[in-house]
Every structure is written in C-alpha cells, then in structure tokens.
Write a protein that binds this DNA or RNA. Sequence first.
DNA 1: AGCAATCCTGACCGATGTGTCACTTTTCTG
DNA 2: CAGAAAAGTGACACATCGGTCAGGATTGCT
Lengths: 211, 211
Amino acid sequence: MPDNPQNTDRPKGAIRQENERIILSAAEDVFSEEGFRGASVGMIAERAGVPKPNVYYYFGSKEELYKRVLEDICAAWLDSAGEFDDAADPKAALTAYVSAKMDLARARPKGSRVWATEMTRGAEHLSAYLRDAVDPWVKAREATLMRWINAGKMAAVDPRAYIFMIWATTQHYADFEAQITHLNGGKPLSDSDFAAKKASVIAMVLAAAGL
Amino acid sequence: MPDNPQNTDRPKGAIRQENERIILSAAEDVFSEEGFRGASVGMIAERAGVPKPNVYYYFGSKEELYKRVLEDICAAWLDSAGEFDDAADPKAALTAYVSAKMDLARARPKGSRVWATEMTRGAEHLSAYLRDAVDPWVKAREATLMRWINAGKMAAVDPRAYIFMIWATTQHYADFEAQITHLNGGKPLSDSDFAAKKASVIAMVLAAAGL
DNA sequence: AGCAATCCTGACCGATGTGTCACTTTTCTG
DNA sequence: CAGAAAAGTGACACATCGGTCAGGATTGCT
C-alpha cells in the first residue's frame, strides 16, 4: 500500500465511491450511538463489513472520518434551512421550513443524533460551521421574523427563542427516537403516525406565532 | 482494603458521603460530554480529584456509577414533572410545568445531556424507568389535556405531540447549550437573558395550545 | 499480456481503558 | 490508647483502542 496521507486527493473510482459511502453510513450509525470518543473504528469497520485497516485506507484517521460525517450532516441541515424562504408570507414560509425539518428528522435521525452528540461535547468540530453558516442564517431569519412581526403579520415572539423552538421540536423526533418508541409501546412511529405528528407540530408552531 | 462488592451496603460516613457526591458530580460532567462509552473512569477520577481505584472503592464499576448518575437525573425529572398539576386550569398548570422544566434545564444542563446521550444509545439503561414512570405520567397528562380540550379550555392539539414539544423546547436550552452559546457571540446566556427566553418559551407553549 | 494503480488484510505496536489488590494511612469507636 | 473499620493508592494484569505496514489480490489501462 503506497504511503499517501492525502487520501482525499485520490481519483475517485467506483469501488472507492461505494466503499466510502458504506463506511460513512456505518460511521454515522456508530457515532450517533456513542459519540466521537465512544465510537471505535473497529465498531465502524464491523458495521460497514470491511476490515479496520480499510477504514484507514479510505479515511486517514477516526477524526477525519468524523469530520466527513459532520460535513455531510451540515449539508443536509443547510438544505432544509433553505426552505425558510423569507420572500413568502409567514405562514407559508414557516410551514415549509417546519415541514422540511420534520422530513429531515424522519429521514436522517442518526445524522441529527451525531449533531446532538457533538453538541454535548461542546461542538468543537462544529464551531466554524456555526460561526460561518448557522449564525448568519439565524440573524437573517431573526430579521425576517421581526419584519413580519412589525408588519403585524404574526404575533410578537422572541425570534431567536422561536427558531430554537422549531429546531428543538422537529429534531426531538430524531434525537429522542428511542424515547418516543418506548412510549409508543415499544414500536417506532409508523409513517402515518409520523405524518400526524408532523401536521400537529406544524399547527402548534404556527399557533405559537399567532398564525 | 476489605473485599466488599456491596459498596452500597456500607454505613454512610461523612467522608463517604462527600466523596460520593464529588465523584457523582464529576461523573455527570464527563458522561454528559462523552456519553457512557466515551467517558473513562480515569477521566472521571481526574475530574473528581481522587485516584481511580477510589472510584471503584465507592462505586463497584463504571456501569454502577453511570446508573447512580441516571437515578439522580430521573429523580430531578420526576420533581419537575410534579409541577404539571392536573387539578389546576390549563394555563396555570402548563405555566408551572414549563417554568419548572426551564428551571431544571438551567440548573442541571449536564444531567439533561446525560439523559440525551443515553437516549442516542437506545436508552437501554432508562427502559425500566420510561416504562414505569414516564409512560404512566405521559398517559395521565394526555388524559388531562384531552379533558381540557373537550371542556373547551384549550385548543385541540395532539396531546402527546404537545408534551414532546414542551420537553424538546425546554431541554433544548440544556442539551444544545453549546450551540446557543456559539450563537450568542460565544457567551453563555446571562441570568437575565435566560429569564427572557423562559418567559418567551412559556408564552409560545401556551399560545401553541390557544391559551 | 504486462504493468501500474488501487484495494484488501493479517499481524503488529504503543497507548489507553476497566478493574484488581496488597498494603499503607486515616478515622472511628469502645 | 488499641484495634477495627474506613479510606487511600501505586503497581499491576488483561482487554481494547487508534493506527501502521508488508505483502497479496484485484482492477484498470495500454
């Protein structure tokens, strides 16, 4: 095996692409359960069905693998964040955003949990992203919410507290999936159960802002 | 040192009580950051300022220590749960409950994060507690909310989704403290900042239920 | 087919983790 | 004060971890 610490500079072949995908998926699983420090590369390799040195072949280190997983999650977060279109009216914009967030929670619960575990460790690996992407996004939406409030289009809420409520409530369905399942007689929410909860969340979030 | 696997059967002395308190507190810190598997007894011992074998002297194993930490957190959870008094009217009862939950999030953020990390691992260590304490509590409060809804005292919401919203929104201030701090210019919320957010959360949760 | 590049993997290394234990020191009690 | 109980702790055994590497196998290209 050639000495090449810059694994990411290698040309992409079909095998590489497939194996990276498999390993990243397994890593997301294991990191979501045990966090960065609690997850072992051995567990990830086993989950992915590859030998452990292969994980190092494709990713230079546990940390590099973790960063790649986080990047992917951040991209998904940004995707849903784009649904908060501030040219629309409050009800339409918030409905779309909460809807997208609920869909993301449903489609990517483990990603959400990786994000959550990184938060509990102080979010060191997310600090640049929070500063460069999340913070500006929050400030822009605060401004939008204030504009709507001042135009009398929605009730006067603390914009930031409102945004936190949206995040918390939607991500709860991913992050606390185990609790929700336990409280649902040990069964995960079915698609129709989830759709009903989604509708309820949208309604409540809108009502919280007088919409 | 005598061979006594039943450490918890020993009479409690002042030194023991103090050292257990210190170790439990340190354990809560470390478990909240790295979760069960990622936390090491060595880290906990260092955080507590005691030699590692002393941690084993007072607690039989890492797992026993973890269970003790969780028990303490569950007791706090039950404390705040008692504030949801179903003899009161909806507004008073919900205000009291959300207030208590916000206070708990503020006073015990690390406990909340231990709870959250145990959730991300599937909540195995909490399954009995969820079944025996949380599930009955949720069912009783669902019934209460339905009674209020049917009496026309509050808007028709999905009771369970509403309870999840309360949990999510209040615990968010603990679980995502790192994010909130990052988004607050790197400074933790001051007491007055937090009080304002608390008031906003209470208002929004009430509004979500038409109160 | 030959060769280069890529991929795979058993064995290995030093570091770190859980837990133990013999022994020492300190505290408590009669 | 003496002895028992409680508390403290350096050293240790074994397991697991992050990461490495030589060499074999497979793939891709001319």
